[in-house]
């Protein structure tokens, strides 16, 4: 049973690391700040959660496990907030490749206020 848990934990950590790697590549390759925030939130968060679950399965000691649970929960809560704030700032300061936008509903709104 413990060998099974060890293997499962290792697999999850590996999967999580792969997702985090994809997120890092996305940060480099995607064209503008807004697109990069996608990479910084989804695969990064999911990757971290997988690593956390994997480590919890391998450690199996309560003291560290609960800390890991907190790490995962706070990551899930805070990552979207960061992405939202960075994205908002990026849009307002022109960090968006407008040639890559199919449509931009925010452009009509931003005309009068705040700019």
């Amino acid at each position: 049973m413990s060998a099974f848990l060890d293997v499962l934990g290792a697999v999850l950590v590996l999967l999580g690391a792969l997702l985090a790697l994809a997120a890092a590549i996305g940060l480099l390759r995607l064209p503008d700040v807004l697109s990069r925030m996608h990479a910084a939130t989804k695969p990064q968060t999911a990757g971290l959660v997988l690593v956390v679950i994997g480590s919890a399965l391998s450690l199996r000691t309560s003291v560290d496990t609960w800390m890991l649970v907190l790490v995962g929960v706070f990551q899930l809560i805070t990552a979207p907030v960061t992405a939202h704030l960075v994205g908002r700032l990026a849009y307002r300061s022109g960090g968006v490749r407008e040639d890559l936008l199919y449509r931009d509903d925010l452009a009509d709104r931003e005309d009068d206020p705040a700019r």
Partner: peptide, 14 residues
């Protein structure tokens, strides 16, 4: 998103 990040070709439009 991981696939959109690593796939070859032009960047995705949004």
């Amino acid at each position: 998103v991981a696939w959109q990040s690593v796939r070859p070709g032009p960047p995705p439009r949004s």
